[in-house]
């Protein structure tokens, strides 16, 4: 059986107030937003309706293990959500630290299966605090990447963020960007403003990754940090190709404005960029999948991510539909195995 690495799983608090146990005393009385508190929500809740119970979906490690590992998943990368950007950036850095301590306490340290790996959350609106958090946790063997929200008040190629990326790269930690927010300290979710209803939001919000990606290339961040890697965890890999064509075309015309970009922008992708799959991505006709994956070398960039327990959860079988053998191996485990240094079971090969 093919090995499988699920590169995008959301572990949750059992209940919203659980986070408070991990906050320092100075902040325990502060009002902080709940998860699932934003305007754009899926009907019936953001998570699989069969998983709501006394506690939040995705909040019990044993249940999550059973759902994932009994279905052939070898490793799961946990991508916990925080409360997104909030106006008090110092408090938000403490919330990130609380989420990290909770992830270690409830998920990673008690995990006897050794199949969970985690994302440490940092707050990009507090670059000094974010670097300090990376330094605090970087040597933990089960924390394999740094996580930041897709929502940001400036694109991630801007210079104020660079110390964070530099710290992550120095420790060999990829930076995972995941939609996380909705509390008001955000830009509108589409390039042209606020979507009317949830489908407009859900279909187009993931595409904001491209603004981060374009600035990381064009402002020279990838060029200055050869070890820096970004993972865009909400999908959108399928529109990467036409957007990179545009960036390459403009570079040919106006390279002299950013002369540190010393190769076609698309040539930065293999060394610096990965995507997690999403149920919204790809051609509706699976017969077009193989060919489209090979444009822009996307077969080497994409990692299967279930988004469990999100309502849009996708299975490895559905994700791999239409792929040829080598593409399937890359997407289901090989790309993630290389990025996170995870050796898959020999018996699985």
């Amino acid at each position: 059986m093919t090995p499988i690495i699920d590169a995008n799983v959301q572990p949750h608090f059992r209940y919203n107030a659980e986070i408070r146990r991990y906050l320092p005393d100075a902040h325990k009385l502060r009002s902080i937003p709940d998860v699932e508190q934003q305007w754009y929500q899926a009907p019936g809740g953001d998570y699989r309706q069969d998983l709501y119970g006394e506690n939040y979906p995705g909040s019990d490690p044993e249940t999550v293990s059973r759902h994932l590992f009994s279905q052939g998943v070898d490793y799961a990368i946990l991508n916990p959500l925080t409360r997104g950007n909030i106006a008090d950036y110092l408090l938000n850095s403490r919330i990130c630290a609380a989420v990290n301590d909770w992830l270690l306490d409830r998920w990673l340290e008690p995990d006897s299966t050794n199949r969970f790996r985690g994302t440490m959350r940092v707050n990009p609106e507090d670059p000094k605090g974010a670097v300090a958090e990376i330094e605090r946790l970087a040597t933990h063997p089960k924390l394999v990447q740094v996580g930041v929200p897709m929502q940001s008040r400036e694109p991630y190629g801007k210079p104020m963020f660079e110390p964070i990326w530099e710290a992550a790269a120095a420790h060999g930690l990829p930076v995972a960007v995941h939609i996380n927010g909705g509390n008001g300290v955000d830009h509108p979710p589409t390039f042209a403003g606020h979507a009317h209803t949830y489908p407009g939001y859900a279909a187009f919000m993931p595409l904001n990754y491209f603004v981060h990606l374009a600035t990381l290339i064009v402002e020279g961040v990838f060029g200055r940090h050869p070890r820096l890697k970004f993972v865009f965890a909400d999908g959108g890999y399928d529109i990467l190709t036409p957007l990179m064509w545009r960036l390459d075309t403009f570079w040919l015309s106006m390279r002299d404005q950013t002369p540190w970009v010393d190769r076609y922008p698309s040539e930065y992708l293999p060394g610096h960029v990965r995507f997690c799959s999403s149920a919204f991505d790809g051609p509706v006709d699976a017969g077009k999948m193989q060919r489209w994956m090979d444009f822009t070398g996307k077969s080497d960039l994409l990692m299967y991510g279930s988004s469990y327990p999100h309502w849009s959860t996708s299975t490895p079988g559905v994700m791999a539909e239409g792929l040829d053998g080598p593409q399937r191996d890359k997407v289901l485990w090989r790309n993630a195995s290389e990025l996170y240094g995870l050796a898959v079971r020999e018996s699985a090969l």
Partner: peptide, 16 residues
């Protein structure tokens, strides 16, 4: 037309 740059001493495009 599109601002492509060439080195007239070699005929090479500067970007590519």
């Amino acid at each position: 037309w599109h601002n492509w740059e060439y080195d007239v001493t070699t005929g090479q495009n500067v970007a590519d």
